[in-house]
Simulated assay, not measured.
Amino acid sequence: MIKDLHWNKVILGIGFTFFIALLGYVLAIVPGFNRVGPLACAIILAVIYRQIFGYPTFLKAGIDITAKYILRLAIILYGLKLNINVIFEDGLGLLVKSIIAIIFAIFLMIYLAKWLKAEEEISLLLGIGTGICGAAAIAATAPILKAKEEDTAISIAIIALIGTVFSICYTLVMPILPISSIDFGIWSGLSLHELAHVALAAEPAGENELAIALLAKLTRVFLLVPVCFILIMWLKRKKNGNEGASITFPYFLLGFIMMSLFGSYVLNKFIFISDPIQLWISNGTTFLLTSAMVGLGLNVSLSSIRTKALKPLLAMIITSVVLSIVMFLLTVVF
């Protein structure tokens, strides 16, 4: 009887996160919120629910599964979005620029966090998200850094918001920039935060420009795995000599790599899957990631945002602006 009750709570908890995720999709249809996207909308709804009704402790078991295990499943499936073969064939030059973008964003964020005396964990997560691929990068590296769920959720909410603002600004300045439309696409892919943000900014420039923008962005996504392994080595050295210090290996990243290889060299060459089914898989992955964000968002306290997130938010805005300028110059010159 107790076991049955436990599994009822698990199922109800998972269903609860799915329901708020669906509401996030509905909210994302509303004018204004449609530019923010369902992921950010779902987090906002989860945070609002927590502040009004409190944390639903009776559903904690299911919410925890969504925030931890379904999140890892979403990251694994996210690997299908990465076509490694295309990067090796057409994106090697962009790969070098992506490495520069990632290193620059992370180290500038760390420097600004120390200067502003900002929360280090949130700042590092935001630096990683800004440099690589937004929420997915934060979600993938948070378990390695053993970040608190609240800090992870705050970081994802911030990067979703700022990334959306920047992508809208890109579309506004596009007509007055002294660069070609192709270079605009490359610049967008090298400097904006999420795949969705890149698509939002580059789509008005044209189909070819959008394609090159997404390719530039995918080179940054490709670097997520090596960055994770570098973090593991850095943490091991940092904790060397500390008794009981341990780094949990993120085995779900191996799944990410395997799905990337499967999608790049098997699915696209030997197995035919119709476009509607591929779209369904892609949307399903995004929905699982959105549901996981709900689980994280329910752990956010607004009082914590006021005390912990304002300085990291300022540091991230500065980092995003400077990164945008640097990558613009790098795109124009090289």
Results as ranks from 00 to 15, higher is better:
G129V: 06
L177K: 10
T141Q: 11
G129T: 10
L214D: 06
R220T: 11
A160F: 04
T171G: 10
E203Y: 04
L145A: 10
T164R: 03
L125V: 09
A213H: 06
L126D: 06
E209C: 01
L210H: 08
C133K: 01
E203C: 00
T164L: 02
L200P: 00
I168P: 00
E149K: 15
I156Y: 00
V165N: 03
I212D: 03
G129E: 11
R220A: 02
F184C: 03
I182T: 13
L224P: 04
A196R: 10
L172E: 15
I159M: 10
S181T: 13
V227A: 12
A205M: 15
A213D: 03
L125K: 08
I168M: 14
E194L: 09
I158H: 00
A199D: 11
A216F: 04
I158G: 01
K148P: 00
C169P: 00
G206S: 09
S191A: 15
T141Y: 06
A135F: 10
G129Y: 07
V198F: 02
A211G: 08
I128L: 15
E209T: 04
G163Y: 05
M174D: 12
F166Q: 06
V225G: 00
L215P: 02
A216E: 07
T152E: 11
I144G: 05
I168S: 07
I186P: 05
E150Y: 01
S181R: 14
P143K: 06
P178Q: 02
A196H: 09
I132A: 02
T152D: 04
H193W: 05
A147D: 09
H197K: 10
